[in-house]
Simulated assay, not measured.
Amino acid sequence: MSLDVSRGSITALIGPNGAGKTTLFNLLTGFDAADTGTIELFGERVERLPAWRLARKGMVRSFQTPVGFPTLSVWENLMVAASSTSETLLRALAGRRSWKAGESATAQRVAVVLDRLGLADRKDAVLDDLSGGEVKLVDFGRQMLMRPRLLLLDEPAAGVHPTSINRLGEQIRSLRDDGISVVVIDHNMSFVFGVADYLYVLASGSVLAHGTPDEVASDPRVVELYLGSDS
């Protein structure tokens, strides 16, 4: 397959189970290696780079099953993600004043994200005690705090309470408005068509159709394969 993701846009990938959506994410982010072809990130070929190098370059992803620290609180999970530096001997020698200033700035960023996602009242809850949908929101909050340039979201709305899906969509659109490129995989068609600027429909590892939400929704091949019809 061949596809492009425009800067500062929300691109959605839809298609039936087994179409290759998550496999494509794995190839793009270095978790699997492509047999052939090229992958370019911000104009640079990156298909041979490991996952951690791609993340350092600004491509951040989520997984269908969220990952995190199950025995830590929501606040602690987000603080870890928001920290841009790790402990070193030099930083330790710099003393308490240096790292306290950094921690304070990080805490302010985390508080903003908690409020935006409606999780402020759950900040002290341990991740293991949250619902699946709440864990998904925490996972999304971690990705927001990593300051991505390109964000790949795999089923972000799955399990999220309907009252929180609109808030999630608003935050994804705000990332786009800040110039961040977003690619979304999701089976919730109402959510996808509500946030996407452009869509690719995948089937059996190939691109079946692509276009704006209106163009894709009216494509008879897509209706037959995936969306269904009223007749």
Rank of each mutant, 00 (worst) to 15 (best):
T88S: 15
L90A: 15
R221L: 07
L89M: 15
L152W: 07
A19D: 03
T23A: 15
M189Q: 08
V192G: 02
T22W: 11
V110H: 00
S164V: 08
L153G: 09
T85F: 13
L72T: 08
V112D: 10
R142W: 06
V160R: 10
A82R: 08
G37C: 12
F42K: 06
F31T: 12
P148F: 14
V126F: 13
Q64L: 10
V182C: 11
S218Q: 14
E47I: 06
G20L: 02
L13K: 01
T23F: 05
R53D: 12
K21L: 05
V113G: 03
V138R: 03
Q143H: 15
K100S: 11
Y200S: 03
A81Q: 09
A111M: 09
V222K: 00
G228H: 06
D129V: 05
F193I: 01
S206R: 14
L72E: 09
R116G: 01
G95L: 04
F193P: 01
S164F: 14
K21F: 06
P16V: 11
A55M: 09
D4L: 14
E215I: 04
A51N: 12
G228V: 06
A92L: 12
S190T: 13
A158P: 03
S204K: 15
L72N: 13
S181T: 04
S131D: 10
E103W: 08
L153N: 09
L93Q: 11
L78Q: 02
R167A: 05
L89G: 10
L152M: 14
G18T: 07
A19W: 06
L54Y: 03
E103I: 00
E215S: 12
M189N: 11
V5D: 07
L145R: 04
R7H: 10
W75P: 00
L208G: 07
G15C: 08
D197E: 10
P50A: 10
S206A: 14
A158E: 02
V138F: 12
L175P: 00
A209M: 02
S83V: 00
E215V: 14
Q143D: 07
G102N: 06
R53L: 08
Y198R: 10
I172L: 11
W52E: 02
G132C: 05
V222M: 02
D124I: 02
V207M: 03
H187P: 01
